[in-house]
């Protein structure tokens, strides 16, 4: 998957407080709900500043 979005998430703030972080998670949820099987690690690379928090968040999302 080619990066289509540049990270605009503020790494200094709390990720959950950042609308861009929410958008990234919701976009991933949309892919899951559409029956696609996105590569989480590749997806997370689009957001290097918050990669750890985003990876955890998406892993949690995949569990539910």
């Amino acid at each position: 998957m080619k990066p289509t979005t540049q990270s605009t998430i503020d790494p200094a703030g709390e990720p959950a407080d950042d609308p861009a972080f929410l958008s990234a998670v919701q976009e991933y949820l949309g892919l899951l709900e559409a029956g696609k099987a996105p590569d989480r690690r590749e997806y997370v690379r689009r957001f290097p500043d918050v990669a750890d928090a985003l990876d955890k968040c998406l892993a949690g999302l995949e569990a539910v």
Binding site: A16, D17, F21, L22, K56, C57, L58, G60, A63, V64
Partner: peptide
């Protein structure tokens, strides 16, 4: 929505 994001992160830790 913020609570949801924090909950997902904590869920991964909990798992």
């Amino acid at each position: 929505q913020k609570l949801w994001l924090r909950a997902l992160i904590r869920l991964k830790d909990s798992l």
